[in-house]
């Protein structure tokens, strides 16, 4: 039972990212980078399955520049057995990323692919669904609970109306929601050990994916600032303002 975990390098979620001076892109020059929180959750779920004796190997894969090695080393320190970096200096869009992941899938033939539902940078929420479409594997998004029984899974999903449970045969694709688990931290000995775990590298071209990047970013701006409001003295004052000033109640 082999599990593939795509890992995205993004800004640390505590950092407020701003546009660059020219308003052509975001300014990430001094921003701390990290593993996308949803990918961390995906990896944690795989590690738990392995600890429970239900999985044997966890492979982490990233698509991006050389710096993605940092996030893959983190994944290895957390519990991935080996890692693959598919290199490109271009910033790929979800459709291109999913095509790269399909190539990795075909090489590795994992039984399960668990990935974050969204990157906290681009907020696309697409790659898992596109990957599942292109591999024709069952698609189960926004998971908050995963149960693996032999070669089938039962997954609870968070949907707008509440919760929904789906079951599926393996191989399948799961995307993770926040409440699936709470990821662990890497211990120092594991960080040291991770340095010796295998990290294979390919280029996007070597895998035979033609990058399309059909969407161009023309401008990146800060959203309109809200004017800072006023402090009210007490509940009476608040009720009065809501009734008589903005007339919303």
């Amino acid at each position: 039972m082999k599990i593939l975990i795509p890992i995205k390098r993004v800004n640390d979620y505590n950092v407020k990212v701003r546009p660059n001076q020219a308003n052509t892109d975001v300014d990430l020059s001094n921003v701390k980078m990290a593993v996308n929180p949803f990918c961390e959750i995906a990896l944690e779920e795989a590690i738990r399955l392995k600890e429970a004796g239900k999985a044997t190997e966890i492979i982490a894969v990233s698509v991006g520049d050389e710096k993605n090695q940092e996030q893959l080393r983190t994944a290895l320190a957390l519990g991935a057995d080996r890692a693959i970096l598919v290199k490109t200096d271009e910033s790929l869009q979800p459709l291109d990323v999913s095509k790269v992941l399909v190539k990795v899938f075909e090489r590795e033939l994992p039984n399960l692919v668990i990935m974050g539902k969204v990157g906290i940078d681009g907020d696309h929420n697409q790659t898992g669904q596109m990957f599942s479409a292109l591999t024709n594997l069952p698609q189960i998004t926004f998971a908050s609970k995963v149960e693996l029984n032999g070669d089938s899974i039962e997954v609870t999903r968070e949907i707008d109306g509440g919760l929904e449970t789906l079951s599926s045969n393996l191989p399948a694709v799961i995307t993770t929601d926040l409440r699936l688990n709470e990821p662990r931290y890497a211990s120092l000995p594991n960080i040291m050990k991770a340095k010796r775990k295998p990290l294979e590298e390919f280029t996007v071209e070597e895998l035979g994916v033609e990058v399309k990047n059909t969407i161009t970013t023309l401008k990146v701006e800060s959203p309109p600032e809200r004017e800072e409001g006023v402090k009210v003295d007490n509940v009476d004052d608040l009720v009065d303002k809501l009734k008589n000033e903005v007339k919303v109640i």
Partner: peptide, 10 residues
């Protein structure tokens, strides 16, 4: 994008 910290025109 970025949790609404920026707005992209694409």
């Amino acid at each position: 994008i970025y949790a609404g910290a920026c707005i992209a025109t694409v």
